[in-house]
Design a protein around this nucleic acid. Structure first.
Length: 866
RNA sequence: AGGCGCGUAGCUCAGUGGUUAGAGCGCCUGCUUGACACGCAGGAGGUCGGUGGUUCGACUCCACUCGCGCCUACCA
């Protein structure tokens, strides 16, 4: 029978072990020794690669980040101990609007692309009241500077939390590498016809003045009102009433539409109506999407009030009569001119002049006055609350504005993407339906261009025609080896610098890519696709994408799409979806609610291991309550590990084979735990592993340690003590390694007292190694230990009930238990007598376990004074 | 409106057909026991959201229903 653990390595146990200071101590050691460095010589099948979510570098990390990144780290650490070369890079999302907004506020600047670069520009220390206008290159310099500062702070936090990241592999979503990957990928899509540009109605944020994508919209409940408005009929004395929440769009009306089977309106199909105030003839048309139940059953189609308007406009081939400008104000219009014909142009002009240049909201109030005066508004507006679409970062509802934008095709890949969704292994499995829901609800291709500054430019130029217009149909593209480039400074092949924006010359595409157009390429960016094909082949497709459920429709979806289009594969085998952290009111913790706790403060108060313990208790996909109580419990567990380990390691000799059934039972229990835990962790069930390991560890402390305490001090001879010591050391070794992914600091500390190297580079324990030390898995031995522990518990209970000290002796204990258990218990009797201080132990056959305890008489009081 | 998830002790959560439903926290009681007072031992506390069904047996499976959260759609 092998003894297992060898102790040639010196054992050094501190006098008073403590958690304080473990984080700085070990995070620096790990950096120096490079335990978490990726071994890029290993073939793909020996690699475990993580498509790390890059946190947005625009402010600070919050407790939700700590929560979900801990989950990923646990899995990464497990895989590393299993022998995989773990590719676990950190990424920074420093791209996009969030960064722009933060730079604007932090420095008090605004980007004005028309300004020239000022190399001497110094940002003020404090933002002034009036924003300073800076050139685009200056603005981008400030973005780069601020994100670099934030990234330092983020890295410090992650190290303190103990993330086992390879910091040599850090990537960012802006910068040359990400730009090149984004531009190459885009150009390939363009050449394959999967990316195209089109002048079309697009979702538009009027404050940011940029196009936005369907995936970036959110509903917000807003007050509104139904306005019942009468339209005259061209060939009839009668009128027809529509209901609208957006009366200010009446000048943009191009048709009325009702359901084809709606008897009320059937006779009107094919005739015209006349818009109130503006006198525009608009056709009345049938369409199935019109709902007879809604409003008056006949709707006004405007260009464009909402997405349904766009559908109708396309389906019915209606003209465009757009009035909302990119800034959200109503465009001035000359009534009577082409496209704005009116039966009464002067009156239309007189009315419209009161609306022009007003925002939609103000124009709405104004036109209601006008409609009241003209008598076209029937009754009072009926107030309602309705959901309105907003850009998720915006402050006013999105409008639909016609503009030229780049799109990546998605609609035609719907079916194959649904297949990909099913091919992916989801943790938890039910999250798959979220992606399917989203794919099934797609209503247009993905708009990827944004009219912003800090982002990846489209590497495209257009010939400028003699009339000064751009020839969009014949875009000029660079070769891949020229990338990355900025078409606003780079000159296309065959042109001279001075031909920029000149007839016969060229003009750069002014837009930047949507942040998701870059983020969807994180596996390619992190894996250094193109620049390091050898590395990429070893890590891609990746093993896991960890992310939260709220960005399935954006990040997860777009990454799947890009990998499918570029490689014809999934980007990863697994998607591990984490939940949110909820505050005690069950609301999502967020900055805007002012209930965010700073992660560093938590780590300092509860210890990284304590915070990780809380995080690890949140199961995949499950929203978890923010609970400092759980962090305290985790901290206590870590302290217990220190103290129990100190006890085990304080007297590790003598040692011998493990032959005592109680000891063999312990190793059987630990081995079984290891077997289950390994399977659970393979399946991403990290939370249940922690729970089970914790339960067994407390059993180990409360029962096993108490049972063998006197024996290992030599009360039953050297061989019996040796059996206990060997079992203790091997069980401790197994338990420490089991806890290592969860509590990396305390386990490393204890490991360093007696084992060479890092516990995080140690092999994951196997059930077999523990069974081997025990001379085989032994269910009977485990039962022996359980029985002894149960009886010990009964004895403690008696002492507690009688309010006597635990060191009180038991005069007589009568144990009744089934015949089969009787033989098993007999093998633990010596330990039981010793730990329970039992003077007389009688074991009888009975139905079920029953213990009668008679405590020794209390010591007579020394003195009693009257 | 459709979909997904959740509803178990005061709180946070385990428990997917089998004796009397579990843990931790909190609460109460006791104990300075040769690792640990940042400790140890014990106790009280639940008609498992509701109704009905399947079954020898239901927290667990089915149907309906109530409440909460989220996703998607609609939002004239």
């Amino acid at each position: 029978m092998p003894v297992g653990i060898d102790l040639n390595h010196p054992v050094r146990v501190p006098e008073k072990p403590a958690l304080e200071g473990l984080e700085p101590k070990w995070m620096h050691t790990w950096e120096e020794t490079g335990v978490y460095r990726f071994d890029r010589t290993r073939p793909r099948e020996e690699v475990y690669s993580v498509d790390t979510p890059p946190p947005t570098v625009s402010g600070s990390l919050h407790v939700g980040h700590v929560f979900s990144f801990t989950h990923t780290d646990i899995v990464a650490r497990f895989q590393r101990m299993r022998g995989k070369a773990v590719f676990y890079p950190m990424g920074w999302d420093d791209n996009g609007l969030a960064t722009e907004r933060r730079v604007q506020n932090y420095f008090g600047v605004r980007c004005d692309p028309s300004l020239p670069y000022d190399p001497a520009f110094q940002a003020p220390d404090k933002p002034g009241k009036q924003p300073i206008s800076v050139s685009r290159p200056n603005f981008i310099e400030l973005c780069t500077r601020l994100t670099a500062e934030d990234e330092k702070a983020f890295e410090a936090l992650w190290r303190y939390l103990g993330l086992s990241v390879d910091w040599d592999m850090t990537y960012a979503t802006i910068g040359a590498r990400a730009q090149r990957v984004s531009q190459v990928s885009f150009l390939r899509l363009f050449k394959q016809g999967h990316a195209y540009q089109l002048e079309a109605p697009t979702l538009w944020d009027v404050d940011f003045r940029t196009a936005v994508a369907q995936a970036e919209l959110e509903d917000r409940e807003q007050p509104g009102a139904y306005h019942r408005i009468e339209f005259a009929l061209a060939n009839d004395r009668r009128k027809v009433a529509i209901e609208t929440t957006r009366p200010e769009l009446i000048p943009a009306c191009v048709a009325l539409v009702a359901h084809p089977d709606d008897e009320r309106y059937k006779p009107l199909f094919g005739t015209d109506a006349i818009t109130p105030l503006f006198g525009v003839r608009v056709p009345i048309r049938p369409h199935e999407l019109a709902e007879p139940e809604k409003g008056s059953g006949i709707a006004m189609i405007c260009t464009f009030g909402d997405v349904t308007d766009v559908i109708w406009w396309r389906a019915l081939s209606l003209p465009v009569r757009a009035i909302i400008q990119p800034n959200g104000a109503l465009k001035p219009i000359a009534w009577g001119s082409a496209g704005w014909e009116s039966t009464d142009a002067p009156r239309a002009q007189q009315a419209y002049d009161q609306l022009a240049n007003l925002s939609a909201a103000k124009a709405r109030a104004k036109i209601v006055e006008l409609l009241k005066e003209s008598g076209d508004l029937i009754g009072e507006p009926r107030p309602i609350t309705h959901a309105v679409k907003f850009y998720e970062k915006g402050d006013r509802p999105v409008e639909i504005v016609t503009s030229r934008q780049w799109f990546i095709k998605t609609l035609q890949f719907r079916d194959v993407l649904l297949e990909r969704a099913r091919e992916l292994h989801w943790h938890p499995a039910y999250m798959q339906t979220r992606l399917e829901n989203w794919i099934n609800g797609l209503n247009g291709d993905w708009c990827v261009s944004r009219q912003r500054f800090f982002g990846v430019p489209f590497p495209v130029w257009y010939p400028v025609l003699e009339d000064g217009s751009r020839d969009y149909a014949n875009a000029i593209v660079p070769s891949e080896d020229q990338l990355p480039l900025d078409p606003s400074t780079a000159v296309p092949a065959g042109y001279r610098v001075d031909q920029r924006d000149r007839p016969g010359g060229f003009s750069g595409d002014p837009d930047v890519m949507d942040t998701w157009a870059t983020s969807s390429l994180t596996p390619q960016i992190a894996g250094r696709w193109l620049e390091d094909p050898d590395l990429f082949a070893r890590v891609f497709p990746m093993d896991v994408r960890p992310q939260a459920h709220d960005i399935i429709r954006t990040w997860l979806f777009s990454t799947v799409l890009r990998a499918h289009l570029e490689f014809g594969s999934l980007p990863w085998a697994n998607a591990a979806i984490s939940g949110w952290v909820l505050d005690p009111d069950r609301k999502k913790m967020s900055k805007s609610k002012g209930n965010v706790v700073t992660p560093m403060g938590l780590l300092e108060e509860h210890g990284a291991d304590g915070v990780r313990y809380w995080a690890a208790s949140g199961r995949p996909g499950t929203d978890t309550a923010f609970d400092t109580g759980q962090m305290r419990v985790g901290r206590r567990l870590a302290i217990k590990l220190l103290n129990a380990s100190k006890f085990v390691l304080a007297n590790p000799e003598p040692r011998s084979d493990v032959f005592e059934p109680v000891d063999r039972g312990l190793l059987t229990m630990v081995g079984r735990l290891v077997r289950e835990s390994t399977q659970d962790l393979e399946d991403y069930n990290y939370a249940s592993v922690l729970q089970k390991a914790e339960t067994l560890f407390w059993f180990f402390c409360d029962n096993y340690l108490e049972l063998v305490k006197s024996r290992r001090y030599g009360d039953q001879g050297a061989a019996a003590a040796g059996s206990a010591n060997s079992a203790l050391l091997n069980a401790l070794s197994g338990l420490l390694r089991l806890f290592a992914p969860y509590l990396p600091f305390v386990t490393e500390e204890v490991w360093s007292w007696w084992r060479p190297g890092s516990v995080h580079a140690a092999p994951w324990p196997t059930a077999q190694e523990l069974f081997d030390v025990a001379g085989g898995e032994d269910a009977d031995a485990a039962r022996t230990l359980e029985l002894a522990a149960a009886i010990l518990g009964e004895i403690r209970k008696k002492k507690s009930e009688e309010q006597r000290p635990l060191k009180t002796a038991v005069a007589r204990a009568v144990v009744r238990l089934p015949e089969s258990d009787r033989a098993l218990l007999s093998k633990a009797e010596a330990d039981l007598r010793a730990s329970g201080l039992i003077q007389e132990l009688i074991v009888e056959a009975g139905e079920a376990l029953h213990v009668t305890v008679q405590l020794a008489a209390p010591e007579p009081p020394q003195e009693r004074s009257a």
